[in-house]
Simulated assay, not measured.
Amino acid sequence: MTKKYQIFVSSTFQDLVEEREQVIKAVLEMGHIPVGMEMFSAADEEQWKIIARQIDEIDYYALIVAHRYGSVTADGTGYTEKEYDYAVEKGIPILGFVIDDSAPWPRDRCESDTKSQQRLSKFKTKVKSRLVNFWSTKDDLHGKFSISLMKSITGNPRTGWIRADQVTGVEVTKELTRLSSENASLREEIEKTKKKEDSQLDEIRSAILILNANQRSLGARTREKPTWADVTYKKITLADVFHWVAKGLIVENSSEDVGKNIALHLEGTKYLEHYPIGKNVVTDILADFAALDLVEPSKKKHSVSDTASYWSLTKLGKQVLKEFRRVLLEEGIQASRTITEEV
Score class of each variant (00 low, 15 high):
S102R: 14
S102D: 13
A103M: 08
A103C: 13
W105V: 11
R109G: 02
S112C: 04
S112K: 14
S112Y: 05
D113M: 03
D113A: 08
T114Y: 02
T114K: 10
T114S: 08
T114M: 04
T114V: 07
Q117M: 12
Q117N: 13
Q117D: 02
Q117W: 01
R119W: 05
S121H: 12
K122E: 03
K122F: 03
K124S: 06
K124N: 07
K124Q: 10
K124R: 15
K124W: 03
T125V: 02
T125G: 02
K126E: 08
K126M: 13
K126D: 07
V127D: 05
S129L: 13
R130E: 07
R130F: 11
L131V: 11
L131M: 12
T137A: 01
T137N: 01
D139A: 01
D139V: 00
D140H: 12
L141N: 00
L141T: 00
H142Y: 14
H142N: 12
K144W: 04
K144F: 03
I147A: 01
I147F: 03
S148T: 14
L149I: 11
L149C: 12
M150S: 11
M150Y: 05
K151P: 02
S152P: 00
I153C: 07
T154W: 06
G155W: 08
N156K: 15
P157K: 15
